[in-house]
């Protein structure tokens, strides 16, 4: 699922490796993957079980996968390539902001209820996708109410009203 590609400036297509020389933008994640593979293999070797009806047991398959993943991580480390540049500056702030907004909405979901959580999420996200404040507010409130009506009344799926208001 590569999705759609819009007109992208040439310098933004520049591979990560060309920018940081040694290609740490990819080699570092490859090292992390190698460590994850080791940890996964270590945890697999320590799986406890009393009895297994097959000669392989529950450890061997994940152990094999751990070895495979570690080898592949090394191969990736040795020959990185194909990564996109990481967001920087304003884009990085926006991306981090959208992630924070999503976590905030998840935190509000049970506490403040569906309507407020969705209102915050949809309004904030609309602003990040270049709506004016008025457009964002209108879209956020309309979407929160619309989805509430569709799910709670149309599909009869219960949505949280908010612990802060119901006290339960």
């Amino acid at each position: 699922m590569s999705g759609a590609g819009r007109g992208v400036r040439a310098e933004e297509e520049e591979p990560v490796r060309a920018r940081d020389g040694f290609g740490w933008g990819e080699r570092l994640p490859a090292l992390v993957l190698f460590l994850v593979a080791l940890a996964y293999g270590f945890a697999a070797a320590r799986i406890e079980y009393a009895f297994s009806s097959d000669p392989l047991g529950p450890r061997v398959f994940p152990l094999g996968l751990a070895i495979l993943l570690a080898l592949l991580a090394l191969a990736w480390f040795l020959r990185p390539g194909g990564a996109e540049p990481w967001p920087r500056g304003g884009l990085l702030v926006q991306t981090a902001g959208l992630v924070a907004l999503a976590y905030l909405a998840a935190w509000l979901f049970d506490r403040a209820g569906f309507l407020i959580a969705m209102g915050v999420l949809c309004t904030g996200a609309a602003l990040m996708f270049r709506a004016t404040l008025r457009q964002a507010l209108a879209s956020g409130i309309a979407q929160a109410v619309l989805w509430w009506l569709v799910f709670a009344y149309g599909l009869r799926i219960p949505l949280p009203a908010g612990r802060w208001f119901t006290g339960s």
Partner: peptide, 22 residues
């Protein structure tokens, strides 16, 4: 700015309606 917040809302709703847990 209408479409993508809508996708986020649907993603939240899809997961919540299945597992009823934030």
């Amino acid at each position: 700015w209408i479409l993508l917040p809508g996708i986020l809302a649907l993603a939240f709703l899809g997961v919540y309606s299945t597992y009823a847990s934030s």
